[in-house]
């Protein structure tokens, strides 16, 4: 554990809390993509199956459970809790996630897992873990698309997406730190590539986020 990794994890937790708070304070789901969180729930459920097989640390287990429970809670709040439920506009959140996210990531994960491990080293848990890495890298896409449609970004919504992006950016710093200071550190290229891709998807958002913070004005995206 290093400071970047811890800051990344905390940033992730913080973003989820900010979103839950935002839903409860504003009592609406305008500009929020439930599909992004459904993708994240799939990511966490497929990645954290090792909760049942391996114990790493109390910190590790608690965070995994926290991510799963809080993400499920976001989905539940938006889809089932009134009055928020009736403010959620399904037609704006229409990203075809099975076709464009889940299926391609499943194919890609199967190919890389077979190349990396071979038939003899095949492990279903490892395969799902690899799948989750791919899926996470693009899980924010539905949210970015919804944002683009609403264009005006509410303060807390902007903050939640910012901390979501900061999380993966801090993980990149964590990998750089580990590669330099850890003995026997192994490079993991699939994780690096997906982590960088995930961070790059936020670059445009970061740009307008900081611009609006600097000017103190309203946060709007260009057409």
């Amino acid at each position: 554990m290093n400071i970047f990794r811890l800051a990344g994890d905390m940033s992730h937790v913080f973003s989820i809390l900010v979103l839950l708070l935002r839903l409860r304070v504003a009592k609406n789901a305008q500009g929020i993509s439930v599909r992004t969180h459904e993708l994240f729930l799939i990511v966490f459920l497929t990645r954290y199956l090792d909760l049942f097989t391996t114990f790493y640390s109390l910190y590790n287990s608690i965070m995994k459970i926290l991510y799963i429970v809080s993400t499920a809670s976001i989905i539940y709040t938006i889809k089932f809790q009134e009055p928020i439920k009736s403010t959620y506009d399904k037609s704006q959140d229409s990203f075809l996630y099975w076709q464009f996210a889940v299926a391609p990531c499943a194919v890609l994960a199967s190919v890389t897992h077979l190349i990396g491990s071979g038939i003899s080293g095949f492990s279903f848990i490892e395969l799902l873990w690899t799948f989750s890495i791919y899926l996470e890298s693009i899980a924010i896409l539905p949210q970015l698309i919804v944002l683009q449609r609403y264009r005006e970004v509410e303060n807390l919504t902007g903050n939640y997406i910012f901390f979501m992006g900061a999380y993966r950016f801090l993980y990149i710093l964590n990998w750089i730190y580990r590669a330099n200071f850890e003995a026997h550190y192994q490079h993991h290229w699939v994780v690096y590539i997906c982590g960088v891709l995930q961070t790059l998807l936020y670059v445009d958002f970061f740009y307008y986020y900081f611009k609006s913070k600097k000017s103190g004005g309203r946060f709007t995206l260009p057409t």
Partner: peptide
């Protein structure tokens, strides 16, 4: 043994 990554990371 994990092939692609450190499973201790979240």
């Amino acid at each position: 043994n994990p092939v692609f990554g450190d499973h201790d990371e979240l």
